[in-house]
Structure formats: C-alpha cells, structure tokens
Design a binder for these strands. Structure first.
Length: 269
DNA sequence: ACTATTTCCTGGATGC
DNA sequence: TGCATCCAGGAAATAG
C-alpha cells in the first residue's frame, strides 16, 4: 500500500532509470478503471515524448514530458497494489498489466495493478496540482491551522488528502503513537502543543521511512524490485494484541472511517 | 461546508 | 481438498 515514503522511493528509483529516455510507443489495456484520462489521450500524449524530471506529489508520481518544446505530464497513482516496472521486452507480461511504454533505450516501463485502484492520467504543461500540502514542507503554524474547528477524528483528518497529502493508514497510526494521541480524538480538541508534537512525529516517521526505503507489507517493492525495511520499525500498525514496545499494554485495533486503526490505550490519550 | 458511509477491485487467509 | 466468506484500503461518490 504505497504511501508517501513508498511513492518517494519508487519515484527516485524511476528517475534514475528512465530520465532522458523517449517513449516510442504505448499499449494501453482495455480495463477502464485505471484510466482517469481517455486511453487515446494518454497514448497520444506519451508517444514520442522525452521523459524529464520524475518526482512525487502526495501519493502521485509525476513524469514531466516534452516533445518538440511542448510540455506535458504523465501522472500515476499506484492505489493499493499498483507497480511500475522497468524491464526487458522479453520479460513475461504480468497478469493485470494495464499499460506498456516502449522506450528508446530498448526497455519497457509497465504499469501493473491487480486491484485496479491505481489511476493513470495526463495533463498539459505543469498543470497537475494535487490538493493538500506536503507534510514534509508545511510549517508548524499551518499544520496546526489544518485541524482547527474540525470535529472529525484526528485519524480521519490525517488521512484526508485535501489537508495533508501523502499520509496513509500506516503512517497515520505510527505518527499518532509517537505523538501520544488516540486516533479517535476529535481534531478540534487537541491542544496546540499536542499538534506541534504530532507535526514533529509525522515528519520524523516519514523521514525515517524514506531512509529505509518504505514499508513492505503485502507486496510493495521499489523500482528495482527490492523490499523496504520500515515495516520492522512499526510500533502499532498491524500489531493488535501484541505488547506495546514502551509499556507492554496490548495494542488495540478499532475501525475509523472504515480503516483499521492501531493504538496503545495507555501511551495514547 | 463538513462529515460519515458506501463503493470499487482481487488475492490471500480463514473457516467449515 | 474445495468452496464460501472475509479482509486489506485510497479516493470518489453518495447521503445526511
């Protein structure tokens, strides 16, 4: 389930491998769910374009493209199970492959996504702008202001991509644990000091996770097919019933906004 | 304007 | 062994 650290890791890996390459031709599958722009529009935008900067915005991967001075962007959201693989054309085509870009270097860039929650789209020039603010760039006052007056549980607010972009279920739970805040706490009832602590926790967790190449749970791998290691640092996520690493109290799991939320009932208030 | 709930999708795990 | 059922969750759609 790629969140900000996994998407950052993948984008960095892809940047190393495909920057400067030219997309010679494109195949797009017939399943409609993965396409946010019409297939013909995606194909015509990508074909004969040179791949420039590859970067992350929230949970999106952005490929800056140019073709005869005309600029555009290819935007990829990996959803739950999406993968972008760079491989030789002879490599067997994986089940659930939805797009194949043939590159001038002789390799292919393939989009594979069994669950089809991922999305592909294109935008003219540098037009794509995800909602929300980057959690690693926002300053303390703006972070605190995001939650002012919100009655929703803090966990839901952290998952809301229109506020902060890039935080998903794992990093929301891990950040709340480090900040000592229960996931069900109403955002508006959290003091400025606690929010400042949460801000620090979010940044710390995301930076540590990026440094370890993300969390490999289910089937996440980076652009080189390697697993990340941050799952070994999880303190609450998927640890229901196991002892808190700080106080030994069993970790509890509740459902908030349809998502599993894990917390220590003693360390988090 | 907010907030809460439902829906989409498949593979792996679980239960009988 | 086989078959049904449940669960994972990001974000859009829907309902309140």
């Amino acid at each position: 389930m790629p969140e900000l650290p996994e998407v950052e890791t993948i984008a960095r890996g892809l940047a190393k491998r495909v920057t400067g390459d030219i997309i010679e031709s494109v195949w797009i599958g017939r399943k409609k769910e993965p396409l946010k722009s019409p297939a013909a529009q995606i194909a015509s935008t990508l074909e004969q374009s040179r791949i420039g900067h590859v970067h992350r915005m929230g949970k999106h991967i952005i490929f800056d493209l140019d073709r005869q001075k005309k600029e555009s962007q290819w935007i990829v959201h990996l959803g739950m199970t999406g993968r972008l693989q760079v491989c030789d054309p002879q490599t067997e085509i994986a089940k659930h492959t939805h797009a194949i870009l043939r590159l001038s270097s002789g390799r292919e860039l393939r989009f594979v996504d069994p669950r089809r929650f991922g999305r592909l789209s294109v935008a003219p020039a540098a037009k794509f702008d995800a909602a929300g603010i980057e959690p690693l760039e926002i300053d303390g006052d703006r972070f605190i202001a995001l939650f002012r007056g919100r009655k929703t549980p803090i966990k839901s607010a952290l998952l809301n991509q229109k506020l902060l972009r890039g935080v998903g279920n794992i990093y929301a739970d891990e950040s709340l644990f480090r900040a000592g805040i229960r996931p069900r706490r109403r955002a508006a009832t959290i003091t400025r000091d606690q929010l400042a602590r949460l801000h620090a926790a979010v940044k710390e967790v995301l930076k540590e996770a990026i440094a370890l190449g993300g969390s490999s749970v289910s089937d996440y791998v980076n652009a080189d097919g390697e697993e990340g290691f941050f799952q070994l640092q999880h303190r609450v996520y998927a640890r229901e019933g196991e002892p808190c690493l700080v106080c030994k109290t069993p970790i509890e799991r509740v459902v908030i906004a349809g998502r599993s939320s894990h917390y220590c009932p003693r360390c988090q208030k």
